[in-house]
Amino acid sequence: MSTPTMGSETLGHLSEEALPGDEAPATKRQVSGKSPLRIAAGRLRQDKVAMVCLTIVVIFGLIAIFAGTIAGWFNVTTTPGNPAEDLNYLNGGMPYKGPPNGSFDPDHPFGIAPKTATDNLATWLYGCRTSMMIATSATILASLLGIVLGLVAGFVGGIVDKIISFVTDLFLTLPFLLMALVIAPILSERFALKPDTYKQMQLLSLIVILAGFGWMGVARLVRGEVLSLREREFILSSQVIGMSTPRIMFKELLPNLVAPIVVAISLMLPAFIAAEAGLAYLGVGITQGSSWGQTILQASSYFEHYPLYLWEPLLGIVVLVLALNLLGDAIRDAVDPKTRR
């Protein structure tokens, strides 16, 4: 009598049958892939310091965007002598309004400026807008210029790479502060006779100066990354199928450079904020309108008797630049696959 053999169905039935006391078989988990940017974003969300810094940066950004609305809530303006103050304040007399040497005034939470009686809160709010606007615009312009030149130099190579590399090295040898001290007054004086557009041209000239001396780092970074990617299989395949050079650079190479570009931008922004304030303090930046650097210049002579006047813009710069730098470091660690937190 032959022994019946077990078919595949019997084996499958026995393998799937749950033993007494065992739980029901677990369902299969669906494994979904994640892009490097999603992985970096997840690691960044787990970093408490980065989240605090991001919150601070967002708050400063909202202050810059809604500076006029916030000033309206406190009923303050940047108009000199508004509202009318005692003549002692207008002439720089003592005591100044605001702690520690003066009493707190709810109508002027940050005090008022000596001689002009301008509200310090309004000046601080619009100074934040000026710094953020100039630094953001210069960062975008410098990033675009650096990305394009870096892509072209790294992918095209040859004489084009040599020319772009020479120009990059030439700009790197020029001292930024000295060139800014020379170029900024020249650009400003060309429009000094046009008071209607003088303020706007000051902003534009400062953005051009910051971007003109800030694109080199991004260009060298992108060029180095492109040199390591242009011999990869997906680039060679794109060339074989006849894809155009601009399409290869911007459709194939650029998406693989997002992580280092984001890191470079995050570190460039605080540098431009500090540079804008420094140039305004030296008198070659923003002289028309509100600026943190200009306020520091005016407040330096009153520090002994009115330290609040100096500490307000100084703390604004320090907190914003520190938050941006720490956030940039966190982004750099998050996009680095070798980093373990």
Rank of each mutant, 00 (worst) to 15 (best):
Y198N: 11
V262S: 10
M1A: 15
T130E: 01
T168Y: 04
S244V: 07
L19T: 11
L151Q: 08
V218H: 03
E189G: 06
Q298V: 07
A280C: 10
L206H: 06
L229C: 09
T118L: 02
R340Q: 14
T139D: 05
S301G: 12
G217W: 00
E17S: 15
S188V: 14
P95Y: 01
V31L: 11
L44T: 11
I186P: 12
L203V: 14
I241N: 03
L193H: 15
E9Y: 06
Q46G: 15
L210I: 15
F303R: 08
W215L: 08
F104I: 03
L37Y: 09
I248K: 04
L125G: 09
Q30P: 06
G7E: 06
F303V: 15
F104G: 06
I163F: 13
V57L: 13
F110V: 07
F213Y: 08
A64Q: 05
H108P: 07
I63Q: 02
V222S: 04
M133I: 13
K251M: 12
S244N: 09
M94N: 05
P83L: 02
R247D: 10
L144S: 11
G98L: 00
I159S: 15
S205R: 00
H305W: 01
P20L: 05
Q46E: 14
I59K: 00
G92Q: 01
P175N: 06
A323N: 06
R220D: 03
M94C: 00
R43T: 15
R247K: 14
A334N: 03
L177V: 14
G61W: 02
L279G: 10
H13Q: 13
F213G: 13
A117D: 13
D22S: 13
A271W: 04
V284R: 03
P337C: 02
I59L: 14
G214N: 01
G111A: 10
S266T: 15
S35E: 14
M243S: 14
N88P: 01
S188H: 14
M201Q: 12
G111H: 04
L19I: 06
E252W: 00
